[in-house]
Amino acid sequence: MPAVPVRADGDGRARVSLAELIALRARVGRVRPQPLNSRALAAGQRSSRLYGRGMDYAESRVYQPGDDVRRLDWRLTARSGELHTKLFQEEREGRLLVLLDTHASMRFGTRVRFKSVQAARAAAIAGWYAVRAGERVGAMAFGSCRQLLKPQGGPRGAVALCGALSEWDGAARAVEAAEPLSEALARGGRLHGANRVLLISDGMSCDDAARGRLRELTRHASVAVLVVADALELALPPPGRYPLEHAGRRREVSLLGMRQRTEFQRALGAGQARLGALAQGLGLRWRSIDTVADPLEAITALLGARQAR
């Protein structure tokens, strides 16, 4: 396991916990990922395996079921005690790009944890899952924090992702900036090399132009969407008075009548409803989870094998 920088860790509820993100590796380790061939992009949908004699050696990675045993890297296998496969210059491993929403609306939660923390947990699981399947993983933060982590392979790539998620969580709290989803997708679309994209958001930044940007992105990559929502955004709240805190100020919202509760839920859940409808309308893989759920099942469903269209 690569060394991880020492920093103040979050509580896993209102702040992302780096230790928890790294520990999720064990959870993903119990799941058997679909073996992935090295990919040569063809409209983001087809994959091919290119190898033979006379090609330049590029690097080695952990052996994946289905790899040609004639290409085992015996020296690295002997040093590490774990089977490794040689990759050559012509081969292109799959690359997963996680687009992570860091808007202020993500820093909200009434059950267990904030949406921002749940989003980071889902992104980390996606990273561990991808590298186990032989892919490289990178990430782009949009919204309050706008940073890029270039794709890396193996455990080092997943650890780098976890570190970035922790850092971005802290950086996003210092800035209250809005970025329409369409602009974030345009930035993501300019990042060449990723043949799979996972968008994680609560949908509050979803604008009308996002439909065209998402459709354009699907021409170059396979796109999946994970909508993260709070319980209050998914169902009518029970009658009562609800204390809410924002920017250090506490207020009480009275939700006693049916009309009040309905309007509150509709306004609060507008983002996740809009993004979910958009993903479904475009025929994308998508799932919705709340802040209590285990993201593992949703991530494996989104990133699992799918027959090319």
Rank of each mutant, 00 (worst) to 15 (best):
S48N: 10
V98Q: 04
W128T: 04
T300N: 08
S17F: 07
P243H: 11
A3F: 05
Y51E: 13
W128R: 02
V98K: 03
H246D: 15
Q89F: 10
R287G: 00
G163I: 08
A104M: 10
T85N: 05
V253N: 07
D202R: 01
R111S: 05
R111D: 06
M258G: 03
I299A: 07
P237I: 11
G269N: 06
Q152M: 15
P238R: 13
L161Y: 04
A194E: 15
A19N: 10
E216P: 09
G163S: 12
D290E: 03
V253H: 05
R79C: 12
A293T: 01
G257P: 05
R309G: 15
A267T: 14
L217P: 00
D56G: 05
V131K: 02
R309F: 08
M258T: 09
V69C: 08
A133V: 06
A104S: 10
A221F: 02
T110F: 06
R261W: 00
A141Q: 10
V4M: 03
T110S: 15
Y51I: 08
D101H: 06
E245Y: 07
L83H: 05
A164H: 10
G12P: 13
Q89E: 15
E82H: 07
A158P: 01
D101T: 07
L244E: 14
R187Y: 08
M55Y: 07
A298N: 01
L36G: 02
G134L: 00
A8L: 15
A8W: 03
Q280I: 10
L232W: 14
T85S: 13
L97N: 02
R39A: 12
G170K: 06
R32C: 10
H192T: 14
L165F: 06
A14N: 05
K150N: 12
I200Y: 02
D101C: 13
L296G: 00
V175S: 03
R309M: 10
G154Y: 05
Q45F: 06
L256W: 04
